[in-house]
Write a protein that binds this DNA or RNA. Structure first.
Length: 494
RNA sequence: GGGCCGUUAGCUCAGCUGGUAGAGCAGCUGACUCUUAAUCAGCGGGUCGCAGGUUCGAAUCCUGCACGGCUCACCA
């Protein structure tokens, strides 16, 4: 085997490992129970000055990874990082006696436990004067550079564990992600919602229009799809008598990858019986402002070049008004042909044979959506684009639906749920037609779901929120891969 | 899938119109008991993503491929 430079660095560390073993030191020893997290040390002792610390003679033990090492021969300083932060530690020969010789076997990246007295250095930095230390895990691979960290995006995603060690802001993002989900759950539970789990393996890929992943069950000799949405199962629960339910979990869509799309992504869907989409808009405002306040400390959040203001109420306007506002001429709303012509003239790609609704939707995505920066509800969509939503009484060609846009992104999609089994069957049949005409993404008929509606579903409102996109917004990340710990990548070559 | 861009030491990056690869950090050796990206002296480290081609000569130009980024398409 040929010796690469990296292999040489690893060899050097293996040699230290060997030397430690020869000295009777276990480089991967077991339990070490630190008395404090690094952050505790700062929160508890920040106000004590040099003399006060001296007097109190505080003993502390911490465990973590060495991320910086400054060796002085008969003394050494290091930075030890744990899950909550980092602290400086100070080794001195006169204090450690024989054990001091082991300091030269410490590499950047090693996990050690230390114990000692807290003191302040000449420059007033809170530091642990090490009385004793234990090797907990010897690191065999060099960490990225202390100053620039790990920048290579590919390496950051493939070796997220390294990214998390050396880039503190990445860690913060994922802590915030958990906070967002926690407060989301907390809010819904306080509002009387029941969290449920519905299948991720479906025999029919329904509840959305997307290409599913296929899988296979051996024992049942049956093809299955990874779910593209939990919607149809959650509504079955409304039929069953649960009046407020939600599910947080992965959806899977076999589609392109982009800064806004990962093949598996996290959604929340929640359903409320006896309410409609108007109620839901207000509820959404409360929900979001609750989370944002808790997670960000206030309602104004920086996102890229924008400051998003989550203070309710959010602007509401109908899909058609939104288009009119962008000077889409009246005749475009009349028929598909005129609309297509206008769109093409504007340089908007329209698939041939697109219906009027479809064309308007395309125009919307192109000219309106990117400019919806502050939270905005777009309401009243054409029924054709919304096969699971309830029609508006006074305008049955529209449905009671809204989508929430923030920073030019769709964050939430919601509607008054269609609970008329006959209308629902008709709309499914229409999709079945589309499927027969070659539209692979048009869902199949879900007879069991119709059966459930026939048993009777209470009137209800339901909403889905893309958690990843919400996390992007609240953590100021421009790519979905930066809010997913292990985004999907092709395997590394060779 | 299309377009554009990128891939050089463990990490971060230089490397001009082609002349045979450099820095900082990390590493190793030595000095140093209050440093803060410690400092000082010395040393080692590269199939320049892969495969072809052009050329006397390729990290550099051309083609193909791989992986990644952005973007378009796709995405109720």
């Amino acid at each position: 085997m040929q010796e690469t430079p990296l292999a040489e660095l690893i060899q050097q560390r293996l040699k230290k490992l060997e030397n430690l073993k020869n000295l009777g030191v276990d480089p991967y020893s077991g339990i070490f129970t630190p008395s404090l997290k690094t952050s505790d040390i700062f929160s508890q002792y920040a106000d004590l000055d040099k003399e006060a610390l001296e007097e109190k003679d505080i003993n502390a033990s911490v465990a973590g990874r060495i991320i910086l090492l400054r060796d002085f021969g008969k003394a050494a300083f290091a930075h030890l990082q744990d899950s909550k932060g980092k602290i400086q530690i100070y080794f001195r020969k006169d204090l450690l006696a024989d054990k001091f010789q082991l300091v030269k076997y410490i590499d950047i990246g090693d996990i050690i436990g230390v114990e000692g007295r807290l003191f302040r250095t000449k420059t007033n930095e809170l530091t642990i004067e090490v009385k004793d230390f234990t090797f907990l895990s010897k690191s065999l691979r060099p960490l990225p550079e202390k100053w620039h960290g790990l920048k290579d995006v590919e390496a950051r995603y493939r070796q997220r564990y390294v990214d998390l060690i050396v880039n503190p802001s990445v860690k913060e993002t994922f802590i915030k992600r958990q906070q967002i989900i926690k407060y989301l759950r907390e809010f819904l539970e306080n509002e009387g919602f029941l969290e449920v789990e519905t299948p991720m393996m479906h025999t029919i890929a329904g509840g959305a229009r997307a290409k599913p992943f296929k899988t296979y069950h051996e024992a049942l000799d049956m093809e299955l799809y990874l779910r593209i949405a939990p919607e149809l199962y959650l509504k079955r629960l409304l039929v069953g008598g649960f009046e407020r339910v939600f599910e947080i979990g992965k959806n899977f869509r076999n589609e392109g990858i982009s800064t806004k799309h990962n093949p598996e992504f996290t959604m929340i869907e929640f359903y409320v019986a006896y309410k409609d989409y108007l109620w839901l808009m207000e509820f959404t405002e409360k929900l979001l402002s609750y989370i944002v306040e808790k997670v960000c400390g206030n309602l104004r959040v920086k996102f890229g070049e924008y400051t998003i203001d989550f203070t309710p109420p959010y602007r509401r306007l109908t899909l058609y008004d939104a288009l009119r506002e962008k000077n889409v001429p009246a005749d475009v709303f009349g028929d598909a042909e005129a609309a297509t012509k206008w769109a093409l003239k504007k340089g908007i790609d329209i698939p041939k044979g697109a219906t009027l609704s479809k064309v308007l939707d395309e125009i919307f995505k192109e000219i309106v959506e990117p400019e919806l920066i502050q939270p905005t509800f777009i309401i009243d969509y054409p029924v054709e684009l919304s096969p699971l939503a309830k029609r508006k009484k006074e305008q049955p060609e529209l449905v009671e639906r809204f989508e929430l846009f923030i920073a030019g992104r769709e964050i939430a999609n919601a509607f008054s749920e269609l609970n008329d089994p006959i209308d629902q069957r008709d709309r499914f049949l229409k999709q079945v037609q589309e499927r027969l005409q070659g539209d692979e993404e048009a869902p199949e008929m879900d007879e069991d779901f119709i059966k459930a509606l026939e048993v009777g579903m209470p009137p209800a409102a339901g909403e889905g929120i893309g958690i990843d996109r919400l996390v992007m917004l609240l953590t100021d990340n421009q790519s979905i891969r930066d809010v997913i710990l292990f985004p999907l990548l092709r395997p590394e070559p060779k």
